[in-house]
């Protein structure tokens, strides 16, 4: 593979991977708190449509981003309420929100005059630098040639990693996801910690969705994000619930999305459908391998994931 093919593939990988980075990180944070959120797909979609709509109306990208994050967070509050306060099935609640979010996003996209469908974005995220260092070989486009949200994603990943492993709040978060009873006994407010982090996860999912509608596919379609939300759920496992690995996994996924094209230029033909299966197959293998035996402790899910917590009377 010559250098330019590599650069093109890598550049596209980062671009395609960025929304997944946000969504996967959001889901990691939520799951680290012990809550399983299967509504990521729905939250990404409402984020995408909200971001698009806000930017369409105001011409302001920042407002679009904020709208997207709020939309994702609002939807996640419903999930938080069902899962944490009502303590009903997190699985069903998440699926319900995905359905609702999917319908809502389509609905918003098609109502109003003019309908958003088919409209091009008024403003999109463009690369910040188009000349100068951005022209340097390899490093130029790959490091300096991206739009603002890509850099934001790098910052957020770094911040999340530091937060998780080097701050007191991050420790508290991890404890709540592993053993809420012990965290409770140590004086931690389990419910509050869970609510906050579920909402952060929802906001990040919304942001990921907005990247699709404001940078990658700069017009509104009915199916703007594909299966991105579900892929994020899979990547959380592959990333062993760690932010930096999530970044890597998302970029690998982005590269896989480009692979079809890349393979063609190399003269190899691999069916797109089979390539599309890869993240899911890997997630299953990872799930089986990582969650049994000793490895599960180090690389597996937070121990209390998906289990509602209620303080028992001693």
């Amino acid at each position: 593979m010559n250098e330019s093919t590599f650069v093109l593939t890598a550049f596209a990988a980062i671009g395609l991977g960025t929304p997944i980075v946000f969504a996967t990180l959001g889901e990691i944070i939520t799951e680290r708190a012990g809550v399983l959120n299967l509504g990521v797909q729905g939250m990404m979609l409402v984020g995408a449509v909200s971001g698009f709509w806000a930017t369409f109306k105001t011409g302001n990208l920042l407002l679009g981003v904020v709208a997207a994050m709020i939309a994702g967070a609002v939807l996640s509050v419903i999930h938080a309420f069902s899962s944490i306060t009502l303590r009903v099935s997190q699985i069903v609640s998440g699926i319900a929100l995905t359905l609702f979010g999917t319908g809502l996003a389509n609905f918003i996209g098609r109502t109003g005059t003019p309908a958003l469908v088919g409209q091009p974005s008024r403003v999109t995220f463009e690369p910040l630098l188009t000349s100068g260092i951005a022209d340097w070989p390899v490093v130029g486009p790959l490091v300096f040639g991206h739009d603002a949200l890509v850099y934001v994603s790098w910052l957020v990943i770094a911040a999340a990693s530091y937060y998780l492993f080097h701050t007191k709040m991050g420790l508290t978060l991890r404890a709540v996801g592993e053993d809420p009873a012990s965290a409770d006994a140590a004086g931690v407010e389990v419910a509050r910690v869970r609510y906050v982090h579920v909402m952060v996860g929802g906001a990040l999912a919304g942001l990921g969705g907005a990247y699709f509608s404001l940078a990658l596919v700069p017009s509104w379609q009915d199916d703007p994000i594909g299966a991105a939300g579900w892929i994020a759920i899979a990547l959380v496992i592959l990333a062993s619930w760690r932010p930096w690995r999530a970044l890597l996994a998302a970029y690998l996924f982005g590269a896989a999305g480009r692979l079809n094209f890349t393979f063609q230029t190399l003269g190899v033909s691999v069916p797109a459908n089979l390539l599309a299966m890869i993240p899911f197959i890997l997630a299953i293998i990872a799930m089986i391998v990582l969650t049994s035996g000793k490895r599960a402790r180090l690389l597996g899910a937070p121990a209390a994931l998906g289990i509602p917590y209620a303080r028992e009377q001693r």
Binding site: L86, R87, V88, S89, L97, F100, G101, T102, G103, A105
Partner: peptide
């Protein structure tokens, strides 16, 4: 939009699962 139906179905499920409480 026909998506109204998907929305309704999602909403029904949310209320149904919350109703279990």
């Amino acid at each position: 939009p026909s998506a109204t139906v998907t929305m309704l179905q999602g909403a029904i499920l949310i209320f149904a699962v919350a109703g279990e409480f």
